[in-house]
């Protein structure tokens, strides 16, 4: 090779390597220390709602009537908020000045059953009981491959699952991966209210996953139909057609909500 060409080649390589290295240095190490170190989300974030059962009845009734998702029940016998129906719009907090319902920045929202999603006096904090899934933990605790299917999702839920693969959350450090084929998967992450047009494809994907299969419903759409619950074009709620193992509420759930749910439910640690 003539010397000029070699020099030119050298220069290009150097520039390239420099840029790569400089960027690498600038970017540094960005992965969150979570779950070993707690993360605090900024104050406006609407996470786990706190219910004040002592609020006055008029305010409670007002919230019940004004909740666009019919997620609130307030009468003398029962006061409850269904996390599966709620889309975290904050209307009830605004109407009650936070005196009946107040949204905290706690992002721990997932549960293993529909019943646990209903927050009431007996069930104030949504949680995943650790005992119930010893077997699951044994099977999938160190390696879990999931397939994602969007069945009418608005792309916000999907985007916030996708984001788990970015360096900040780095899902794969927990041995959890989103895979490209149902044949490689141990389970399915479902988003969306299941549009009728996607029902068949969803069921076929389910069939194609080898047993035993885990089904995770992400977002209020997948849990209850979300804002589309009155539409005739959707099935509404995954558990109407498939057994669901894990419910992750939100519209969309914060990536940390999903991450925490996956760790709590599957991880051995």
């Amino acid at each position: 090779m003539p010397i000029e060409m070699l020099e030119r080649f050298d220069r290009i390589v150097n520039q390239r390597v420099n840029k790569l290295l400089l960027n690498r240095l600038e970017q540094g190490y960005r992965t969150t220390k979570y779950p070993n170190v707690d993360v605090n989300l900024s104050k406006p974030y609407r996470g786990r709602p706190e219910i004040n059962f002592e609020a006055d009845m008029i305010t409670m009734k007002l919230c019940e009537e004004n909740c666009p998702q019919s997620a609130i029940i307030a009468n003398s016998e029962k006061k409850a908020l269904n996390l599966g129906r709620c889309v975290f719009c904050g209307e009830c907090e605004r109407l009650s000045d936070g005196k009946f319902i107040h949204f905290t920045t706690d992002f721990s929202l997932a549960t293993a059953t529909q019943e646990d999603l209903v927050l009431c006096e007996e069930n104030v904090i949504p949680k995943i009981e650790r005992e119930i899934n010893g077997k699951i933990r044994k099977l999938f605790g160190k390696s879990l491959q999931l397939r994602q299917v969007s069945a009418g999702g608005c792309n916000a839920c999907e985007a916030d699952i996708n984001v788990l693969n970015t360096p900040f959350f780095d899902l794969s450090r927990f041995g959890i991966q989103i895979v490209a084929s149902p044949r490689h998967a141990d389970g399915m992450l479902i988003t969306g209210p299941i549009s009728k047009n996607m029902k068949l494809a969803l069921l076929k994907t389910y069939e194609a996953i080898p047993d035993p299969k885990i089904i995770i419903a992400i977002g209020s759409c997948a849990i209850s139909g979300g804002v589309f619950y009155e539409s005739s074009e959707v099935v509404g709620g995954v558990d109407r057609i498939l057994p669901v193992d894990l419910f992750i509420p939100g519209c969309p759930p914060h990536p940390l909500t999903t991450l925490k749910a996956l760790i709590d439910y599957f991880s051995k640690y």
């Binding site: 719009c89 999702g153 549009s195 009728k196 047009n197 996607m198 589309f228 539409s231 959707v234």
Partner: peptide, 22 residues
């Protein structure tokens, strides 16, 4: 495949600003 009947839903429901905004 993602058809959720949004436009129909808007006309169907009575005019509720909170609901429509969501």
């Amino acid at each position: 495949y993602q058809h959720r009947g949004v436009e129909k839903l808007i006309c169907k429901s009575c005019f509720d600003i909170t609901k429509l905004s969501n």
